[in-house]
Design a protein around this nucleic acid. Structure first.
Lengths: 232, 232
DNA sequence: GCGTCCTTGTAACAAAGGTCACAGGTTCAG
DNA sequence: CTGAACCTGTGACCTTTGTTACAAGGACGC
């Protein structure tokens, strides 16, 4: 009996150690201060979410704050009744800013989160995060930084929607995805792209064909090869 | 001589007292904790900015954080070369979220701030704000709340740009302005509206005429009367 | 290999929005 | 009152995007 307890205890320590390592690897800014790091280790747990799993729905209360350690999560805003539009992706080393601010306000989520690539997520209970945010400036700095990044992406999206045509929107969408997935092959159908960008399949087909004619992409059934991955 | 010093001292106290009152009136969440309130009173100063004054330029470093106590400030995002687009307004009781997050990152401003209505602003030096943010959770709560609000406005803008036509965009712009200025008369030319929304004068004229025909607004030279101020 | 389902291509048309050209109205200083 | 500067209205035309309709190409199980 005593032996079993020992084993369980060792296993428990192993997990804690693993979370600590993960934090240090993917969230350096949260690991600098040992107290903060240890506190996060204590209250968090690791979960895996499968592709296409909906991890946050619009109108839902925030019960946990996620820290992504692998995979990719996409964030959508739903329109009043029509469709939905892709706002941005959350990648490893990031958290969900909307969750954090929504939690602080005690409001319900204005967006939807869906797993794009099987994701490993460090999950922290909402009430614990509130305590941490009160106690450690480093946590707030982490959130501010994230917020700033996502805000910039939204601003860029607004200027593209206002001043550019869909060609540019599609091209940026593809290049962004290519960078995030670290691959010049994007496995998406025209229909999926249309949904993400709030347009229609036919329009996407037309635009993609034009982009292919102009030498920016190469089209295949169910996938698109990016021929100009880095605009900069 | 001694008398003069006394007078100066009394005047000084009067100003501090005034700032304290202003904080309590317009920023209740920052006034609840007396320590925080007193600290802000000590480091801030009151300034007045005139209509059309540019108080923050794109690419500029953040040297102060503003707290609006009267008037209205508009925030623009400039496009790479074309034009600029109105993102949102800052009204009394609010601060500039972009300034705050940009300050935290030590980056330069991605947006431009212009006074729309003569504005009274409580100005706090950037380095002092950073100390306050480290020390008082209430300050962070204030910023999170603001951030959340502005984020929502951007999300709404994105869905309108994606799923609605310009008619709706114009109508929402007018209703928003009407609410902020607390008046059903909007003093704007078609040209100004076009600039704010990233469109052209002719298109605005056309849309406004249609809105008038449909009974939503009444047009005059240099001003627009909103006939349906509350959509809800 | 065959049928079925999913995906893509494309023509023809409609609607929205941007562009150009020009005319008429208002305002206001001199 | 008059000319200049600014504001608004509108028609004609073009580009972009959405819609409808249909055909054809690939994938995959049976």
């Amino acid at each position: 009996m005593h032996h079993l307890i020992c084993e369980l205890y060792e296993y428990f320590l192993l997990i804690l150690n693993m979370i600590e390592k993960i934090l240090e690897t993917h969230f350096p800014s949260l690991s600098k201060l040992p107290e903060l790091r240890d506190e996060i280790v204590k209250i968090s747990s690791i979960h895996t979410f499968l592709e296409n799993e909906v991890i946050l729905r619009e109108g839902q209360y925030i019960k946990v704050i996620p820290l992504l350690i692998s995979g990719l999560v996409k964030v959508y805003k739903e329109d009043v009744e029509d469709g939905e539009i892709l706002l941005y992706y959350i990648k490893k080393g990031e958290s969900c800013v909307m969750s954090m601010t929504t939690l602080m306000r005690g409001d319900t989520s204005p967006v939807k989160g869906v797993v794009e690539e099987e994701a490993g997520i460090l999950v922290i209970p909402a009430d614990e995060v509130l305590k941490i945010a009160q106690k450690y400036p480093a946590w707030n700095a982490f959130i501010y930084d994230l917020f700033s990044n996502k805000y910039d992406e939204l601003l860029h999206m607004i200027t593209t929607l206002t001043f550019s045509n869909k060609d540019k929107l599609v091209m940026e969408y593809l290049q962004n995805l290519s960078e995030l997935k670290n691959s010049i092959i994007i496995h998406k159908t025209h229909q999926q792209i249309a949904q993400d960008l709030g347009s229609t399949r036919e329009v996407m087909s037309r635009i993609l064909k034009k982009l292919e004619k102009d030498g920016f992409v190469h089209l295949s059934q169910g996938s698109i090869e990016i021929l100009t991955p880095n605009e900069s």
